[in-house]
Design a protein around this nucleic acid. Structure first.
Lengths: 331, 331
DNA sequence: CTGTTAGCGCTTTCAG
DNA sequence: CTGAAAGCGCTAACAG
């Protein structure tokens, strides 16, 4: 492994100079620059990221801490983030928080100790005084992903309230009056906002909000299946359902199929989050589709921007989702 | 940030001793050990991975280099790998090779320079004398993922030949004689093996192999769509199709739908690779399902095993896939 | 415009 | 059973 010292010797300069031409950290004589570059080329030298990091410089790496495994939405985001990070010369360290505040804190500590330049985090319900406090204390630049929090951090995600209301309106226009909602994990801002959107939509259309028609699906497949069953077991069951995210939609569909119900014939269904190939699903789902690629890329962009200007005011960006009409709504 | 020196002072010992109790690298007096642990607890000390790495020790991190973005199979594997790595105290560095030898080499170099302890790689068609040579030259431990190569490296993936043959047999048992195959990217071992499996299956069932009924879908969605169209545009088109992987199945389905064909009524379809929710697809696909979680976990296990014993003979492990009968075959 | 030198925080001989 | 001290490869004062 050739080191900076080798290059320096080869070029007949000091390591200081090599370092400076490499990082552009101070003016260096044109001739010298050339000699250094030549030496680098000749030796095939590549700087050692680890040593660089230890000496206090950037690591050119960013951490991504999310609750990925079972969630196709986050899987898409991972791809987008990796791609944007790579394009900008950064390596990605990936960790799963499982949406548990403790695991999340551990993960974040790990990443901070590995000296990532910055962090992308989909905060769990308890992040504010766990992981986020830790980041703040160690001034680790962070961009929050997907979930918005009333904290002074950069944040990027999508609109939740209005789009969810729109989903309800769409159902109302089809004549539905009793509409059920399968909500996400308590404490996540997305859950709150979508729930608020649901209520808003009901109000706007002059529909009564029956609290018994709101069930928690905990943002996951199985719990959503149970929630759906609870909703449908009621004396006066809903004629239409709104699913609060990706994973829960799957649970809802399974519950419906278990009960032998066909969508949209026996019940209508609309959902937040699209699937990459939902046009091959049966039924083809009517959904609010998030611009996942753009969200991932934007998050990386914001993070790198903040690295360049640590004192900038925190910004929140909401990228508009798309309303995709397919068959499950009964259109 | 508290360092080892702080802990040493606090415990009234040298950093040498702290290091040794931390790593269990030599016998230390029981009393001393306790004092050190107490000091660590009191100071909330956490070792600095970067410094550790620079000093020549392990980094407790592994690299995963795959061609992920558009491939659900690899997305699953990422999840499994992260989970197993985390469980074993390792952090994951993720990079996308895009299945291009140059990008792959870059990625691998990057990862090696970051001193990952080992590498998980889904080798591209040109990996053997690019990325793999580089790893060997730098004795970076590597486990090959998904694709098998005639090289002295550990490898883990699934059986391709027999299962694909079985897919064909299943079709033959349904009376199909003209069966088309949508093959993957040239040069990948999985492509070769599955193609061989296809031929084997045809032979076994006494069916004629019409080379015009084999089309390359380049392992991707769009090319597979085109390949399907080419297959079906022939004078004597196939009555059944075998899709060589996940992404290509999507392409095939789209092509079929574009042509107004219904599966399995107008044509039968079976495929390699399952989807997480294929039971919600229309048609419900009959497939060979890889044990992706097990593959990811096993790859991590093998890698860590090799770290402990660098001179062990390389091993190849094929985890058996599952044959899942659903509707698309016409059952 | 360039070089000397003191670290960054840890591991690991080598001595005791 | 324990410590002193020499690095690992790089960055960044500080000094010319």
């Amino acid at each position: 492994m050739t080191t900076m010292a080798d290059v320096a010797r080869e070029a007949g300069v000091s390591t200081t100079t090599v370092s400076h031409v490499l990082n552009g950290t101070r003016r260096v004589n044109e001739k010298t620059v050339e000699r250094v570059h030549a030496a680098i080329a000749r030796t095939g030298y590549r700087p050692n990221t680890i040593a660089r990091a230890l000496a206090g410089a950037r690591t050119q790496s960013i951490g991504l801490a999310i609750s990925g495994v079972s969630n196709p939405y986050f899987m898409d985001v991972i791809g987008a983030v990796e791609s944007e990070a790579a394009a900008r010369g950064h390596t990605l360290l990936l960790g799963d928080t499982h949406d548990e505040p403790e695991k999340e804190l551990q993960m974040v500590q790990e990443l901070v100790h590995r000296r990532v330049d910055g962090l992308l985090l989909a905060p769990s319900a308890g992040a504010a005084d766990g992981a986020l406090r830790f980041c703040a204390d160690n001034d680790m630049p962070v961009v929050l992903l997907d979930r918005f929090l009333p904290v002074p951090f950069d944040q990027v995600g999508t609109d939740n309230e209005e789009p969810t209301a729109r989903l309800v309106t769409h159902l109302a226009q089809h004549g539905h009056k009793r509409i059920g909602f399968v909500a996400g994990l308590e404490g996540l801002s997305t859950t709150d906002e979508r729930l608020r959107g649901f209520r808003l939509g009901m109000q706007r259309n002059g529909l009564e909000i029956d609290e018994a028609l709101i069930a928690s699906g905990s943002s996951a497949h199985e719990p959503a299946r149970d929630a759906t069953n609870r909703l449908l077991d009621q004396p006066d069951p809903p004629t239409a359902l709104v699913a609060g995210n990706n994973s829960m939609t799957i649970g809802v569909l399974h519950a419906l199929r278990d009960r032998g119900m066909t969508v949209p014939r026996d019940i209508a269904l609309v959902a937040f989050d699209d699937f990459e190939w939902s046009d091959l699903f049966e039924p083809r789902l009517t959904v609010i589709a998030q611009p996942t690629d753009a969200i991932g890329a934007e998050a990386v962009r914001m993070l790198l921007e903040r690295l360049d200007d640590p004192d900038r005011e925190p910004r929140s960006i909401r990228l508009a989702p798309t309303f995709v009409t397919r068959d499950s709504c009964g259109c």
